[in-house]
Design a protein around this nucleic acid. Structure first.
Lengths: 227, 227
DNA sequence: AGCGTTGTGTAACATTATCACAGACAAGAT
DNA sequence: ATCTTGTCTGTGATAATGTTACACAACGCT
């Protein structure tokens, strides 16, 4: 239930609030947190669970999503380096059950903090409070953005946006399936396939099994918004 | 910039955390908060605004909603007695701009707290922290519920649910327009009209200009969920 | 090559969204 | 009372999206 000294340097590179010179918080953190590894695909939190600990991601990402009866999904947001699942946090602090699912997108290393200390640090450290409230605000606006997309944006624009964002993360070819994109955006595989095919006919992309090659990134960027 | 003594009794009836015997917080609150009245229909917070104060509602309700380019709307949640707009709070605490609109549903009386003290009380009072985090958690799950509804539920079921909820708030006849319901649920007036007409043909409701009479509440309750 | 698994294509149909109106009703003005 | 104006509702046509039910293609494995 504490973090070995040889890891301190590394953690402070991943977790910003450890660099804010709040010695008390750092001491508390290093003594009461622990490390954990989670494997890709592993479930983190089930809907309806109450949460007994808060995980701060060191590397890798997790995906938080809603699951409908029919198996349909939609991603609410992702948790990346230095972040933590604020739903977990808010469940801890308010004892409302967790209203979604979370899984590991990739292998994850995380610092684990027992829920009762999450609470007590709030009284001790303004750095910690800022961290927690920063997360809250970020998540709220993430999720509101999801609402906005779902309600106001057409599916072709959303898919164009998805492709464009993936592209700007590096690869000019995306390795994924139509089903994954559908689950990301909260639609069905058929719809994604249809729209990708349209894009292909317009020579914006090239679709093969399991990959999407981006050809005309400029036009895709344009397509994100109202045409 | 303080609250007259003759109002203390009344405020403590509206705001739960004033009854938690946190004397320090109560003192701070009564000395630093102030009262305000807002009129029905008055805008409270515009999208993109940064917020300089937190309002805690004493009576009345406010509606927080998203607005699309085409004028379409969807309600995210309502703020009622003893509550406050957590978006405001999270904007205050994180300096992210407000990502939606808020207006008064009704006339509202509210206690106004300047943003800098919102922050400082967090350090002082665990009662205040619990209050704020309770709000955060409630709003997060409100909004996630909206996502769930929009993505997974059919419109007729959502409208049935809306009608049923209104009914359980008292009236057997709802005074509202189709447009208001559409803005509530994030769809268009025509869709609402059509579905209401279906319900009327099934003798569940009776529609006249400006009002909807609920006839068969039982069946409406059933219709909320998967048929 | 044969097999099962996973990913994709497609057609038909249901639901929802959007557009373009027409008509119906209420309340005030003449 | 009649007219006028603004708000509210109805409807039909068309586009977009969701759903269902398959067929087929690509890949890994034996």
């Amino acid at each position: 239930m504490s973090i070995p000294i040889d890891q301190h340097e590394r953690l402070s590179q991943c977790i910003e609030f450890l660099n804010k010179n709040d010695k008390q918080l750092n001491t508390l953190f290093y003594s009461q947190a622990s490390l954990a590894k989670l494997e890709k695909g592993q479930p983190i939190c089930h809907e309806g669970n109450s949460c007994s600990q808060l995980a701060i991601v060191l590397n890798g990402t997790a995906r938080v999503y809603k699951l409908g009866e029919n198996g349909k999904e939609i991603t609410l947001y992702r948790v990346g380096q230095g972040e933590s699942c604020i739903l977990t946090a808010s469940c801890i602090l308010s004892e409302i059950p967790f209203p979604a699912f979370a899984v590991c997108d990739t292998n994850i290393e995380a610092a684990i903090i027992p829920s009762h200390v999450v609470q007590s640090w709030l009284a001790e450290s303004s750095v910690w409070r800022d961290y927690i409230f920063g997360l809250v605000a970020t998540r709220l606006s993430n999720i509101i953005q999801v609402v906005e997309d779902v309600v106001f944006r057409r599916m072709d624009r959303r898919i164009a946006g998805y492709l464009y964002n993936q592209a700007s993360k590096g690869n000019a070819a995306i390795s994924t399936t139509h089903q994954v994109i559908a689950s990301e955006l909260g639609t069905s595989r058929e719809v994604v396939s249809r729209i990708l095919k349209e894009f292909e006919h317009e020579d914006l992309i090239k679709v093969t099994r399991g990959t999407i090659q981006l050809i005309d990134l400029d036009t895709l960027r344009t397509k994100q918004h109202v045409s």
